[in-house]
């Protein structure tokens, strides 16, 4: 589970859209501080911003914006949404919950330094997580179930790519489907579309994360579905790796085609162009950067 892949492509946005996106980002940051304390702001990510964005976009109210100052750096001006508080609260809870499980996962998986860093962060994350799980027990249940499923899949004999991607896909499917509200109208068009949208978004995120980690996972002999499928190891040549990347790109494109199909029939009341930009421009851009850039750059901030 990694953060930061679901982001817009800035160069393709209108200035106004970029400002709106930043306003949601800043509002989420502020909400994180309000709900779960100063330290929780560190969990802020593009992914959870996108979750907030989609929630607001399919909702009835379009927020306006008001100017304010950055909560971290008072010299910086920034805009905040003046609506969508419930959506931002849910997104902060998701952010805190996912980070908590990620830190726990890192303690189990990483080597000495990573373990140490994670162990230091754990008390803060655990306290915030306790509050988030109290406010959103269903969300905590979805995420923890997914982590457990992932563990089981990875310890199975030779799992296929689809099986490996299933827990994350399933997690986002449930989280996005819950945007549409109560389960009694579980077959409404909105629920069905959001369900598809979440499933393929989760699948894409899992796959791109696995692709990004191929080299690292070969070096540390960690689990990676692509390394497993193509039997890659330390002696694999650059050519072999490039071939695998070409394959991975196709898998991602296929996933994205389903995601776009769902997005195209999803009714968005606001932020439509921004959500469109993220899915149709931002995600392919990340594919390009991770799979085809010669010298690999770390995906930095916007």
């Amino acid at each position: 589970m990694v953060f930061g892949y679901i982001r817009p492509q800035k160069s393709e946005m209108l200035v106004r859209e970029y400002e709106q996106y930043k306003a949601v980002y800043c509002s989420l940051c502020r909400q994180l501080g309000k709900s779960y304390g100063m330290m929780a702001r560190l969990t802020l990510s593009y992914d959870c911003t996108f979750y907030a964005l989609v929630q607001i976009a399919v909702g009835a109210d379009c927020p306006g914006f008001k100017n304010g100052r950055c909560v971290v750096n008072p010299l910086k001006k920034c805009a905040y949404c003046n609506a969508g508080e419930n959506e931002l609260i849910a997104a902060s809870a998701l952010s805190v919950i996912m980070t908590y499980y990620k830190i726990k996962d890192d303690i189990a998986d990483s080597r000495f330094l990573g373990k140490l860093r994670s162990a230091l962060l754990l008390p803060f994350a655990a306290r915030a997580h306790k509050r988030a799980a109290r406010d959103f027990p269903w969300m905590d249940a979805i995420v923890s179930k997914s982590i457990q499923m992932q563990y089981e899949v990875e310890h199975r004999d030779n799992p296929c790519i689809d099986a490996c991607a299933e827990p994350t896909s399933e997690m986002l499917r449930q989280i996005f489907e819950s945007i549409a509200g109560k389960p009694e109208n579980s077959e409404s068009a909105k629920v069905r579309i959001l369900r598809q949208f979440g499933y393929y978004l989760g699948r894409w995120v899992y796959l791109i994360d696995a692709a990004d980690d191929i080299e690292k996972d070969i070096r540390f002999a960690s689990f990676n579905p692509f390394v497993l499928k193509f039997q890659l190891n330390q002696s694999s040549t650059q050519e072999e790796l490039d071939k695998v990347r070409g394959y991975v790109n196709q898998v991602l494109n296929l996933t994205l085609s389903q995601l776009i199909a769902a997005l195209n029939i999803l009714d968005l009341n606001c932020f439509g162009p921004i959500v469109d930009n993220v899915v149709k421009k931002g995600l392919p851009q990340i594919q390009k950067e991770i799979l085809f850039k010669k010298e690999k750059m770390h995906v930095g901030s916007l």
Binding site: G246, N249, Q250, N253, V279, P284, K288
Partner: peptide
């Protein structure tokens, strides 16, 4: 259909 989707004809990135 699936081949075209894999090659980015329906969105995605085609190197």
């Amino acid at each position: 259909q699936v081949m075209n989707q894999r090659n980015g004809a329906y969105g995605g990135y085609n190197p």
